[in-house]
C-alpha cells in the first residue's frame, strides 16, 4: 500500500546563509495492507519528517513514495489532494480547524468530502466522539476552545471518521488517560483488521508493542547518525 524507495530530503535555509542540511538519505519502507509499522529513532532522527513526506506536506529531494499507485514525490497537487481525501489519513498532534465550526462538523468533514450524506456523516461523527468520551454538550461547540487533551481526541475522531486504506499516526496515544488510550488502540486494531496500512510514531512502548507488527529505526537513514545511537 505504501512503498518508499531511496528517499532523501534536505532543507536549504536561504535566509541563514544558504545552509543546506541533509536530513534523510536512502530511506526504504514498504507497508502492506493490514500492517502497522512503527517509526523509531531519537528525537531529530527524522520520524516526523518521513511521515510528513509521505503525506506530501514536505517535499522530497529524491526517491519515490508510492501510495496506492500514486507517487507523492512527483504528483500534482490535485492528485495528492485526491489521495488525502480518499486513501491517506493523517492524525497529527495538532488540531487545525476553521474557527467557529462545531466539533461534530469538524469530525464529519472527511466523510462529507468523500460524498457521504450529511446526516449519516454526522451520526458517525457523534459515535466516534462518544467513544472518545467527548462530553455531548461540547459537540455543538468549536473545538478551538477545548483543552489540549480534548482537542487531541477530536483530532483522532476526525482521523478515523473515514475508513482510509492507509493511515499516518503521529503520537496518537500521547497524553491520553487509560480509558481513552484503550479506545484509540482499539480504533487502530479495527483499522488494521479492515486492511488499513498504518505508519505510526509511538513513544508509548506498550502501545507500540500491542498494535505494531514491525519497527523501523529511521536513524539508519539519517546522514551523520548511526542506528541505535540514541
Amino acid at each position: 500500500m505504501i512503498e518508499i524507495r531511496n528517499l532523501s530530503k534536505t532543507f536549504t535555509l536561504h535566509n541563514q546563509g544558504g545552509a543546506v542540511i541533509p536530513v534523510m538519505h536512502g530511506a526504504e519502507l514498504v507497508v502492506a495492507p493490514g500492517e502497522c509499522v512503527a517509526l523509531t529513532g531519537a528525537s531529530g532522527a527524522g520520524k516526523s519528517t518521513l511521515m510528513r513526506m509521505i503525506y506530501g506536506n514536505y517535499l522530497a529531494a529524491g526517491g519515490s513514495i508510492v501510495v496506492d499507485g500514486v507517487d507523492v514525490v512527483q504528483a500534482e497537487p490535485r492528485e495528492i489532494l485526491a489521495l488525502r481525501r480518499d486513501v491517506l489519513g493523517y492524525v497529527s498532534q495538532f488540531l487545525r480547524v476553521v474557527p467557529r465550526v462545531p466539533t461534530v462538523d469538524v469530525v464529519a468533514e472527511p466523510l462529507l468530502a468523500v460524498g457521504a450524506e450529511g446526516e449519516a456523516a454526522r451520526a458517525k461523527a457523534r459515535e466516534l466522539l462518544a467513544r472518545l468520551n467527548i462530553p455531548e454538550r461540547l459537540w455543538s461547540l468549536s473545538p478551538t476552545s477545548f483543552s489540549g487533551g480534548e482537542q487531541q481526541r477530536v483530532n483522532i475522531a476526525r482521523g478515523f471518521a473515514h475508513d482510509y486504506p492507509a493511515m499516518l499516526l503521529d503520537e496518537p496515544t500521547a497524553s491520553l488517560d487509560a480509558t481513552n488510550r484503550e479506545t484509540v488502540l482499539s480504533l487502530i486494531e479495527e483499522a488494521k483488521a479492515r486492511g488499513a496500512a498504518i505508519v505510526g510514531i509511538f513513544h508509548d512502548e506498550a502501545a507500540r508493542a500491542r498494535v505494531c507488527d514491525r519497527e523501523i529505526d529511521v536513524s539508519i537513514y539519517t546522514p551523520g547518525l548511526t542506528a541505535g545511537a540514541a
Binding site: 532543507f11 536549504t12 535555509l13 536561504h14 535566509n15 510528513r52 506530501g56 506536506n57 514536505y58 517535499l59 497537487p77 495528492i80 489532494l81
Partner: peptide, 21 residues
C-alpha cells in the same frame, strides 16, 4: 507553486521562506 500546506510548511524558495518566517 505547490500544495498549500507543503509550500507553507516546507518552502523551497528564499522569498517564500522569508515570507513564511
Amino acid at each position: 507553486t505547490g500544495l498549500t500546506d507543503q509550500v507553507l510548511d516546507d518552502p523551497q524558495h528564499a522569498y517564500t521562506q522569508l515570507l513564511v518566517s
